[in-house]
Simulated scan of single mutants.
Amino acid sequence: MKKYSNDNNSRQAVVEAMDALVKKGLNKGTSGNVSVRTGDGMLITPTGISPQALSAEHIVHMTLDGDVDAGQLIPSSEWRMHADVYRGKPDTAAVVHCHSPYATILACARKAIPAMHYMVAAAGGHGIPLAEYATFGSRELSLANLGALDDSLACLLSNHGQIATGRNLQSALKLAEVVEEQAHCYWGTLAIGGPVILDSAQMDEVLTAFRTYGQQRERD
């Protein structure tokens, strides 16, 4: 697992991750947020600043209990969701939340992504789950998200967007891309009668293969 610190390099990595979300078409405007775990808390994007205007000095360091270091901006309204992921998933070092178009379409239709393509296994299971709806920034949303992430590295958030986690920022960003690709694929199949679903045995084979498949392994 990548170890991040409350330093300029880690802050810049968060800035670049937010910029990457925009360049990859996964986010627009001031929506979405990115964080990394540090030794005594987390670094997270601030609220209300567009990725184009974001710089390392804007990134907020705070404890997982919500205490913000002195002299910093207000953190993302979704900070609880990030903090609770770090508490509940000790192998997670980075969290990416975005409103990518097709994942958001499915989230608004309240449709989890089933095993219609083997790449859903990139999230660690037989599909990409859907968290129950709760107001953004609320404790209820954080708990709903944790429930959906219980056996998964990523999930859709009902009427909201998606969240992806990883052992480093690179893997979390990559997974967010995969979630969006799978959402697009599923959306397309729904327009022509729906997908043919892979069965449990087939998905178990995929998950086993992923453990030794070069580029699917997360690297620190």
Results as ranks from 00 to 15, higher is better:
residue 98 C to W: 04
residue 178 V to Q: 03
residue 178 V to G: 01
residue 88 G to E: 14
residue 117 H to P: 03
residue 193 G to M: 07
residue 186 Y to R: 05
residue 8 N to M: 15
residue 17 A to P: 00
residue 140 E to S: 13
residue 126 H to I: 09
residue 1 M to I: 09
residue 176 A to M: 00
residue 109 A to R: 10
residue 84 D to P: 11
residue 187 W to L: 15
residue 198 L to P: 08
residue 172 A to N: 02
residue 21 L to M: 02
residue 213 Y to S: 10
residue 217 R to S: 11
residue 101 P to Q: 00
residue 180 E to I: 01
residue 44 I to H: 06
residue 44 I to G: 04
residue 87 R to S: 11
residue 65 D to M: 11
residue 23 K to I: 05
residue 211 R to I: 10
residue 203 M to K: 09
residue 141 L to Y: 08
residue 116 M to P: 09
residue 167 R to P: 10
residue 208 T to H: 14
residue 169 L to Q: 04
residue 57 E to N: 13
residue 198 L to G: 05
residue 207 L to I: 05
residue 142 S to I: 11
residue 110 R to E: 11
residue 2 K to L: 10
residue 135 T to G: 10
residue 62 M to A: 10
residue 187 W to C: 14
residue 64 L to E: 12
residue 175 L to Q: 02
residue 123 A to M: 02
residue 178 V to T: 06
residue 132 E to T: 11
residue 213 Y to I: 08
residue 166 G to H: 01
residue 32 G to A: 06
residue 38 T to E: 09
residue 87 R to T: 12
residue 117 H to N: 07
residue 118 Y to C: 06
residue 135 T to N: 13
residue 183 A to K: 06
residue 28 K to S: 11
residue 193 G to Q: 08
residue 96 V to L: 05
residue 161 G to P: 05
residue 81 M to R: 04
residue 212 T to N: 13
residue 84 D to Y: 15
residue 141 L to E: 10
residue 62 M to E: 08
residue 30 T to I: 11
residue 204 D to G: 07
residue 18 M to E: 00
residue 149 L to H: 06
residue 100 S to L: 00
residue 149 L to T: 01
residue 158 S to R: 03
residue 118 Y to F: 14
residue 16 E to M: 00
residue 194 G to K: 04
residue 111 K to D: 06
residue 6 N to H: 09
residue 35 S to V: 05
